[in-house]
């Protein structure tokens, strides 16, 4: 469990102790009602090391990654980065790459931005 916390903290670069629990992230979140755990809960649960609950929750996929919480947080906590890091923890835990580099040449066409490939590796590979 502690390993997951370490992973989430390292991968996100977020320090949840900076949070002053004002709830502005959840006040601003457009996907609030679609999420079982809300942005402010993500921060607190990561701080407590409650990562597995988050990994099992659909909330990590219903987050829109709009970064409104990151933009408006008065303490620079960056909750959306934690959500992304928990997603990453799920992928690593499943122990397999959902995207292999051999697959790439077939998928590439001239229109595809390179950034999308990089981003896809971040989300779907260990």
């Amino acid at each position: 469990m502690a390993d997951y916390k370490e992973l989430v903290l390292t991968a996100s670069g977020v320090n949840p102790l900076k949070c002053m629990r004002c709830g502005k992230c959840s006040g601003t979140c457009p996907s609030y009602d679609a999420m079982e755990y809300h942005p402010h809960q993500f921060v607190y649960m990561v701080e407590k090391g409650d990562i597995e609950k988050l990994m099992e929750s659909k909330s990590i996929y219903t987050c829109l990654s709009c970064f409104a919480c990151v933009e408006r947080c008065p303490r620079d906590v960056e909750p959306a980065k934690l959500v992304e890091a928990v997603r990453l923890a799920v992928i690593r835990q499943q122990g397999k790459n959902h995207l292999k580099s051999e697959q790439i040449p077939d998928m590439v066409d001239e229109e595809l931005p390179q950034q999308a490939i990089v981003s896809a590796f971040r989300k779907y590979s260990k």
Binding site: R21, C25, S26, G27, C29, Y32, D33, H38, H40, Q41
Partner: peptide
């Protein structure tokens, strides 16, 4: 006004 109510865990 969109805000969070942290005690009742609602938006």
């Amino acid at each position: 006004v969109q805000a969070s109510d942290l005690i009742s865990n609602e938006q």
